[in-house]
Computed example of a mutant assay.
Amino acid sequence: MFRLLGALAGFFLLGFWGIFLGYFIGSFIDRFRAFGPGGMNPFNAARRQSVFLETVFILMGKLAKADGRVSETEVSHVEQFMQKLRMTRDHRLKAITLFKQGASADYDIRPQLDVFLKTCGYSPNLRQMLLVYLIIMGLSDGHLNSAEEELLRDIAGRLGYHQAAFDQLLDMIMNQAHFAGGQSTSANALEDAYKALGVSKDSTDQEVKHAYRKLMSQYHPDKLMGQGVPEEMIAVATEQAKEVQTAYDLIKKNREQNRATA
């Protein structure tokens, strides 16, 4: 957007050559807005990615041990997660070390969350994606127990989420999971679809589309990578985006059918 405005302003102020100068300045502003503070600096980006990964695996360990024991299902989920990230042997060993560190009974997650907030906290997307990964981890065995949910609420609170906002995010992620694989087998598929987008059947078409576009933007690979989500972790966000797309398509098809028969 700003590159076009810059080119236009450059033309009126400086003539033909001003188009190029204005376009260049506008492009810089667009990239800064998309990536956030420090997004143009590759060293800052690398630091954000490192902190994001560290925080994810430490908190996964803490979440897995929340009920007093790490289950085989949770271990399997983490192993599949690392395979999906296509980690090298060294990175895999480091991730396992971080997971075990978080799972230790006396480990305090607050200092790590402080580091995360200082490095990545400026971006609502990064805070939300951290919670998304953790909620998916918590649901790996099919449900959240009370200890896991309490820990997630504590983490969400430290990330700046009010209880209602966390409840909505949790409900959305749980219902997005119903559309894994491109379809829902639930008898309440349409109701699940509305919950997956964070809207209701009483929402207008415009409200539904806005919610859909907002979620797709949050899961957009380029945007997430620019803000600090490691490229290897984009696969999880891509899966979430597919689930959102499936839910939206179901709502849209249902509304078109209702209008056709009205």
Score class of each variant (00 low, 15 high):
L59S: 06
L197I: 07
H178Y: 05
G160P: 00
I155A: 09
N44F: 13
I234K: 06
Y219A: 05
Q245Y: 11
F20L: 15
F32H: 12
Q240P: 00
A237K: 09
E207H: 12
D192Q: 10
F52R: 01
A103P: 00
R110Y: 03
K100D: 10
A64P: 04
K118Q: 12
I135H: 07
G39W: 00
A247I: 03
Q168N: 12
S76F: 11
R3F: 14
E72G: 06
S146I: 10
V56Q: 12
R92V: 09
G18M: 04
G138S: 03
V51T: 13
A241L: 02
L8E: 07
A156S: 05
K252L: 13
N254I: 09
T119E: 14
Q227W: 07
P42S: 10
V208Y: 10
Q183P: 00
A66T: 02
L169P: 10
Q49A: 12
L134P: 06
S203K: 01
H220T: 01
E207V: 09
G102H: 03
R33I: 15
T246I: 01
E72T: 11
G182F: 02
G39M: 01
S71G: 02
S203F: 00
A147M: 08
R259D: 13
G160A: 02
D90G: 10
T204M: 08
F35E: 14
N188M: 11
E72A: 14
R92Q: 07
H77I: 01
G228C: 01
G68T: 02
M172R: 14
A7W: 08
L63N: 09
T119H: 11
Q183M: 12
R33C: 07
T238F: 09
L98V: 04
L53F: 11
F24Y: 12
R127Q: 06
K252G: 04
E207Q: 15
T238Y: 06
Q128C: 03
K94H: 11
N175R: 11
Y161A: 02
V236C: 07
A64K: 04
G182D: 03
L8A: 12
K195D: 08
V75Y: 09
M129G: 01
V56L: 13
A260F: 13
N145R: 07
N125W: 07
G198Y: 06
R89E: 12
E72Q: 14
N175S: 00
P221T: 05
R69A: 11
M40W: 14
P230L: 06
D167Y: 00
K209T: 07
L14Q: 13
F99K: 08
A247K: 02
P124G: 01
M225S: 08
I58N: 02
R92K: 12
G102M: 05
G36K: 08
E72R: 07
A237M: 14
Q176S: 00
A64N: 13
A34T: 10
R153W: 03
S140D: 12
L8F: 13
L224Y: 04
H178K: 15
N258K: 15
F12M: 09
